[in-house]
Amino acid sequence: MMAATNGLAHASAHKPLFTFGVIADVQYADIPDGRSFTGIPRYYRHSIDVLQRAVSAWNKQGGVKFSINFGDIVDGKCPKDKSLWAVQKVLGEFEKSDGPTYHMFGNHCLYNLPRTELVALLKMPTGSDRAYYDFSPCPEYRFVVLDAYDFSTLGWPRDHPVTAAAMSLLEEKNPNADKNSPEGLVGVDQRYVMFNGAVGKEQLSWLSDVLRDASERRQNVVLCSHLPLDPVAASQVGLMWNYAEVMAVVRRYNCVKACFAGHDHKGGYCVDSHGVHHRTLEAALECPPGTTAFGHIEAYPDKLLLVGSDGMADTEMCFESSQ
């Protein structure tokens, strides 16, 4: 359900409140091209070129206030002795942007480095080791960045209680010996694989507090997560384990207007039954040389306009009458 604007996003009668850049799943590695487990080509070395072109475009446009990277900054196939070097190389490209970049974990990030090290490297504005946070670029808007691997088998020490509890959930939900395989699972149960994760109870409580405050301030909220939160906007194998629980919190309030995600590389879009827009972003990793996938989003009081490069579809997201 992709809603392309066919260039209409480029022209609006009013000036946006602000503009921000978006890119997802760079998954850089200094290795030859390869394929995903489903056979889709992946361009590990070229993906950093896509990022370079994104940063150049944002800077050339001017007025891009910040950018958001939707996770998987490097690929799991990156040689582990080069993990830190690869992350620093990609971050060096983001740092050439005129505005700050807000990062989040993806599963491939956690294949390479432990979460505590990544929080510091990605300069997450949390004041702690946690990887979820919010920020407000103007009084009318609040951005909420989730840690989709708060409850997962990835990034925590093997003997950590979270690792054990997450593995116990996978044992219950996924009978396969290979917990990264959804074979035999049906419908949304396909999401119970090791490369996904969930938002933990403490984070859910924090989310509710943030949304309550945003609702009282009459702010439009943009929810950002590496893992998608709607089965229509992404493949069912790529969903957050407890997406329904997160959306139940969202629906207590009327402030969340859009949920953006990465992870499911082909991208997707839908509007759910409560009028929330869900946009999964196309991956930089799967752009053949000479092509790109990134965009910028114009934020208005009543809509968001995603203007994409050639591999990322334009999408107009008009808000229902609110709050």
Score class of each variant (00 low, 15 high):
M2C: 07
M2A: 13
A4I: 12
N6C: 08
N6M: 14
G7F: 10
G7S: 06
H10M: 11
A11V: 15
H14M: 13
H14W: 13
P16D: 13
T19P: 00
I23N: 01
Q27E: 11
G34Q: 09
S36G: 09
F37C: 07
Y44M: 03
Y44N: 00
V50I: 12
V50Q: 01
Q52A: 14
A54F: 02
S56W: 10
A57C: 10
W58T: 04
W58S: 02
G62C: 07
K65D: 05
G71W: 01
I73M: 13
I73E: 00
I73C: 05
V74F: 04
G76A: 14
Q88G: 08
F94D: 01
G99R: 04
M104T: 07
G106W: 06
P114Y: 10
R115M: 07
R115F: 04
A120S: 13
L121V: 10
G127E: 03
D129Y: 13
R130V: 14
S136W: 06
P139I: 11
Y141T: 09
V144R: 01
D150N: 14
D159F: 12
D159R: 14
H160W: 10
P161M: 15
V162C: 04
T163S: 07
A166G: 02
A166F: 08
S168V: 07
L170A: 03
E171A: 15
N176Y: 10
E183L: 15
G184H: 07
V186W: 04
D189R: 15
Q190C: 09
Y192C: 08
N196H: 08
A198Y: 03
A198N: 03
V199M: 09
Q203S: 05
S208E: 15
D209C: 10
D209Y: 10
R217E: 09
R218N: 12
R218F: 09
P231H: 11
V232Q: 11
A234K: 01
V237K: 08
M240D: 01
M240Y: 02
N242M: 09
Y243F: 15
E245M: 04
E245R: 06
V246N: 00
Y253L: 03
N254T: 09
C255T: 15
V256A: 07
V256L: 06
V256K: 03
K257N: 05
C259P: 00
F260H: 02
G262Q: 04
D264N: 15
H265S: 02
K266L: 11
G267I: 05
G268Q: 03
D272T: 11
H274K: 13
G275M: 10
V276H: 01
V276C: 04
H277V: 05
H278I: 07
T280H: 01
E282C: 10
P288L: 14
T291L: 07
T292R: 05
A293F: 07
F294H: 04
I297H: 02
L306R: 01
G308H: 03
G311M: 05
M312W: 08
D314P: 00
D314T: 02
E316A: 14
M317K: 04
M317R: 02
C318W: 10
C318T: 11
E320M: 13
S322V: 12
S322E: 13
